[in-house]
C-alpha cells in the first residue's frame, strides 16, 4: 500500500530529544491492564479490557459516556476492585503502589470548600506521603505555573470552577506520581487554561511520567497521546497509536486534486468500483473499497497526462473513525 504524502497529523506528544522511554521491550515497565472486568449488579461496566501505558507517554481513553472509562481508572486507583483480571505497575500489583506512585484527577471534582488552596494542597501531599519545606516549594512552583498566584490564600469556595479544577490538578501531581490518571482533565477549562494544561502534561511526559487520560475531544488525543483506546460498552474496540486506530476500520480514503480541478472528479468517476467523490478544500475525496488499489488511480492519471497537485491515501480522521466504530452511540462526542 503506497503512501506518497505523509499523514497530516502525527501525534504532537511524541517524545522529543530529551524524552525518556524506559524499558518498553519487556512490557513490564509502566501500567499494564490485563483482561480486566467489572460488573455492578447486572451491568457490565468493563469487559476484558487490556492496555499498556509506558512511562513517558500519554495514553488516551476515548468513548461515549458510560463506556467504562471512569470505572477503569477507578480500578487502576484501587478505588474499585476488578472482578477479573490484573492491573500492575512495573510488574507489581497496583494495590501496593497506587497511593504513593499514582496521582488522580477524578471526573467528579471535589475539594474542601472551607480550606485555603495552600492548606488543601499540603493536606493532599501529606495523604500521598509527602511533607516538609520541599512540598511547600513545590506548591508555590505549581501555583505560579498554573497562574493561581493571586488566589493562593483564598478558600476553595471563593474560586471559579476552572481555578478549583487547576488546584485539584496540582493536588494530583504534587507527590511526583509516576502515573497520572486524569479523568476528563480539560472539561470546564477555557482555551487558555487548556493550553497551559496541555503543555504541562507534555512536560510531565517528557520527564518520564506515564499519563492515562480520558477525553471527548479528538484533537486533544491527536495532540497529546502516543497511544489510545476507543472503548465502547466496556470493551476496547480499537487500540494502538492514533494512526493504528484510524487504520483499524480497514478503510482508506483518497484525496485527489488536479489542474483543472474537475478533471480529478472525472478521473475518479471513471472507476466503476468507486463510490461518488465529494469535493473538499483539499480536492476530491472518495472512500476506497476494501480491495481497491489506489495506485491504479495514479497510473491512469499519468497515462492520461493529468497534472496532479495532490494525491493522498490516508485512513479516515480520528473523528470519522470514532463515528464509524461507535455506530449509533455517538454520545457527547466533540461537544462537552
Amino acid at each position: 500500500m503506497a503512501r506518497l504524502t505523509p499523514l497530516g497529523t502525527e501525534p504532537a506528544g511524541s517524545p522529543g530529544p530529551g524524552g525518556l522511554k524506559v524499558a518498553g521491550q519487556n512490557g513490564s515497565a509502566g501500567l499494564t491492564i490485563e483482561e480486566v472486568s467489572k460488573s455492578f449488579g447486572d451491568l457490565t461496566a468493563v469487559n476484558g479490557v487490556s492496555l499498556h501505558v509506558e512511562p513517558g507517554t500519554v495514553y488516551g481513553l476515548i468513548g461515549p459516556n458510560g463506556a467504562g472509562k471512569t470505572t477503569t481508572m477507578r480500578m487502576v486507583m484501587t478505588i474499585l476492585v476488578p472482578d477479573r483480571g490484573q492491573i500492575r505497575w512495573n510488574g507489581r500489583p497496583v494495590a501496593e503502589v497506587a497511593s504513593r506512585k499514582f496521582g488522580y484527577l477524578p471526573e467528579e471534582r471535589g475539594l474542601y470548600p472551607n480550606m485555603t488552596i495552600r492548606d488543601q494542597l499540603r493536606f493532599f501531599a501529606a495523604l500521598h506521603g509527602m511533607a516538609g519545606p520541599a512540598v511547600d516549594r513545590e506548591i508555590d512552583r505549581w501555583i505560579e505555573r498554573l497562574a493561581l498566584g493571586e488566589h493562593a490564600a483564598k478558600k476553595v469556595e471563593e474560586l471559579s470552577k476552572g481555578n478549583a479544577q487547576k488546584v485539584q490538578f496540582i493536588a494530583a501531581l504534587l507527590h511526583h506520581p509516576e502515573l497520572l490518571i486524569l479523568d476528563e482533565p480539560f472539561s470546564g477549562l477555557d482555551p487558555v487554561n487548556v493550553h497551559i494544561l496541555k503543555n504541562t502534561l507534555l512536560d510531565l511526559a517528557r520527564n518520564g511520567t506515564a499519563i492515562l487520560l480520558s477525553t471527548h475531544r479528538m484533537e486533544h488525543v491527536e495532540e497529546l497521546c502516543e497511544r489510545m483506546a476507543l472503548i465502547k460498552g466496556g470493551s476496547i474496540v480499537a487500540e494502538g497509536t492514533v494512526t493504528d486506530v484510524r487504520r483499524s476500520t480497514g478503510r482508506l480514503r483518497l484525496r485527489l486534486a488536479a489542474e483543472p480541478g474537475e478533471r480529478a472528479a472525472e478521473l475518479l468517476a471513471s472507476f466503476d468500483e468507486l463510490p461518488p467523490a465529494r469535493p473538499t478544500p483539499f480536492g476530491w475525496e472518495v472512500q476506497l473499497p476494501a480491495a481497491f488499489r489506489a495506485q491504479a488511480v495514479l497510473e491512469r492519471a499519468l497515462a492520461e497526462g493529468l497534472s496532479i497537485t495532490r494525491f493522498e491515501v490516508s485512513p479516515p480522521s480520528l473523528e470519522e473513525t470514532y463515528v464509524m466504530l461507535m455506530g449509533g452511540e455517538v454520545n457527547g462526542a466533540n461537544n462537552e
Partner: peptide
C-alpha cells in the same frame, strides 16, 4: 521537576493526616 530532596520528609500515616485535618479544622 524538582528532585525529591532530603527536605521532603515522609508524611505520617494516612489516618493521622486525616485526623490532623479534622482536628485543626474543628
Amino acid at each position: 521537576m524538582a528532585p525529591i530532596t532530603s527536605e521532603l520528609r515522609p508524611a505520617p500515616a494516612g489516618w493521622w493526616v486525616v485526623a490532623s485535618r479534622e482536628f485543626t479544622m474543628l
